[in-house]
């Protein structure tokens, strides 16, 4: 299968007064055409910075200091800002977490979607508006012609998120990066949005990068999962392997620490926890960043950085005990 996106050894650092923060440190992954990659991890692990790096939306004091981002074979890092503008929104689109802040409150939603079309395609305003309405129909917004004339505050959170998805879809991109797309939404509406993403992927042969801290959402959507911790991918592989046969103690810990629906069937136990907390990115330990919190820690773990190694053909883990 050909890859839509190949990220190789990506490094994005932030140069702050206190020191260099390696927010994304040597991250590599592939997104084969038509598949979804789930990027999971806790706050500050670098998942959003990875997404921002792909669209080259990193601003000072941050900088991409190394690596390659191949989109359909072309390196995005060697493109000029003007060329990048043709990529963003048209070929790679983003869906953000907060639909309220991502939309302009004083413009009609239809206009905001049409704007995307006008920015990328040489069409009339009338045509752009028609495509906006069509995209709104594609995301199952009822009465799309009239809703297009609404302002964002008239719409509910779920509807706004549909608008964001319509905006992402309208130029038929090859890749959508969705950063916590359902985090601010209620579960019953989240279920609707996830179904929608699923059917759109099939219909348009979309590739998707789904960033989420919710393991349940990732398990339902993604084919491949990458787990990030302190700027690095600590484990990557097919979704079944990650959830049923995790090799990295951090992945294991994450999966065990979430309460699961149906837990009241068994005797109530304490949740298993990962002791301690996420390390300060300015003062990362030598060796494995997770070592201070790890139950498998040995002296070797703390000596030198641990490479990401294959545990099977398609499954890799950054752990010497894997």
């Amino acid at each position: 299968m050909t890859s839509v996106l190949e990220v190789k050894n990506l490094k994005t650092y932030f140069f702050t007064e206190e020191g260099i923060i390696k927010a994304v440190d040597d991250v590599s992954f592939n997104v084969p055409k038509g598949t979804a990659l789930g990027l999971v991890g806790e706050s500050g692990c670098g998942k959003t910075v990875t997404a921002m790096s792909i669209t080259r939306l990193i601003s000072a004091p941050g900088r991409i200091v190394g690596g390659e981002i191949l989109f359909n074979g072309y390196d995005l890092l060697s493109k000029s800002e003007k060329e990048m503008r043709q990529v963003r929104g048209a070929q790679i689109a983003m869906v953000f977490q907060e639909p309220m802040t991502a939309l302009n409150p004083v413009l009609q939603v239809g206009f905001q979607i049409a704007e995307t079309v006008l920015a990328h395609q040489n069409v009339s305003k009338r045509e752009a508006w028609a495509r906006a309405v069509e995209a709104m129909r594609a995301v199952s917004i009822p009465d799309a012609e009239n809703r297009a004339k609404d302002y964002p505050h008239r719409l509910s959170g779920g509807m706004r998120q549909r608008i964001m998805i319509a905006m992402a879809l309208v130029c038929h991109p090859a890749l959508i990066i969705a950063d916590e797309p359902t985090t601010a939404i209620d579960v019953t509406i989240q279920a609707q949005i996830l179904e929608l993403l699923d059917s759109l992927r099939e219909q348009y042969q979309l590739s998707l990068i789904l960033i989420s801290h919710d393991l349940g959402v990732v398990a339902e959507v993604a084919e491949t999962v990458a787990v990030m911790y302190a700027g690095k991918i600590v484990e990557i592989g097919p979704v079944m392997d990650i959830f049923h046969n995790p090799k990295h103690p951090y992945t294991e810990g994450l999966l065990r620490s979430v309460p699961r629906l149906g837990s009241s069937a068994q005797k109530r136990d304490r949740l298993e926890v990962i002791e301690g907390m996420v390390p300060n990115l300015l003062r990362l330990p030598d060796g494995c960043s997770f070592a201070p919190r790890c139950y498998k820690r040995t002296l070797e773990c703390t000596l030198s950085p641990i490479p990401l190694e294959h545990v099977s053909r398609s499954h890799g883990a950054r752990c010497i005990h894997a």
């Binding site: 509910s156 779920g158 989240q190 919710d214 398990a219 079944m240 959830f243 049923h244 999966l255 629906l261």
Partner: peptide, 21 residues
């Protein structure tokens, strides 16, 4: 309850998707 995503990719569940808001 049926809308809660399960952290298990093998779990096939019947989801009752509610209409509307």
């Amino acid at each position: 309850l049926s809308a809660v995503p399960t952290p298990d990719p093998a779990a096939k569940k019947r989801r009752i998707v509610l209409r509307g808001e």
